[in-house]
Simulated scan of single mutants.
Amino acid sequence: MSDNFEPRILIVDDARDIREPLGQFLRRHGYRTRLAADAAEARALLMREPVHLAIIDVMMPGEDGLSLCRALAGERRLPVILLTARTGHDDRVAGLELGADDYVIKPFDPRELLARIRAVLRRAPPAMAPPATGPRRFAGMIHDPGGQRLILSLGQEVALTSGESRMLGLFLDAPGQVLSRARLLELHAGREARAYDRTVDNIISRLRRKIEPDPRAPRLIVTEWGGGYRLVAEVEAP
Rank of each mutant, 00 (worst) to 15 (best):
V58Q: 02
M59Y: 06
M59S: 09
M60R: 08
P61Y: 06
P61W: 04
P61Q: 08
G62F: 01
G62T: 01
G62R: 02
E63C: 07
E63Q: 13
D64F: 08
G65V: 01
G65D: 01
L66V: 04
L66K: 00
S67V: 04
S67Y: 00
S67K: 02
S67F: 00
L68Y: 00
C69G: 10
C69E: 10
R70D: 09
R70T: 11
R70P: 04
A71M: 08
A71G: 05
A71P: 02
L72M: 08
L72K: 07
A73Q: 11
A73V: 10
A73K: 12
A73R: 12
G74L: 11
G74D: 11
G74M: 07
E75T: 08
E75I: 06
E75G: 00
R76T: 05
R76I: 02
R76L: 04
R77H: 14
R77G: 14
R77L: 13
R77C: 13
L78W: 07
L78F: 05
P79V: 04
P79R: 02
V80G: 03
I81K: 01
I81Q: 04
L82Y: 01
L82V: 09
T84A: 12
T84I: 13
T84D: 10
T84C: 11
A85K: 09
R86G: 10
R86P: 06
R86F: 12
T87W: 10
G88I: 05
H89E: 13
D90P: 05
D91A: 01
D91K: 01
D91G: 00
D91I: 01
A94N: 03
G95I: 11
L96Y: 06
L96T: 07
E97L: 15
E97W: 13
E97R: 15
L98V: 15
G99R: 13
G99F: 12
G99K: 10
A100W: 04
A100H: 08
D101M: 09
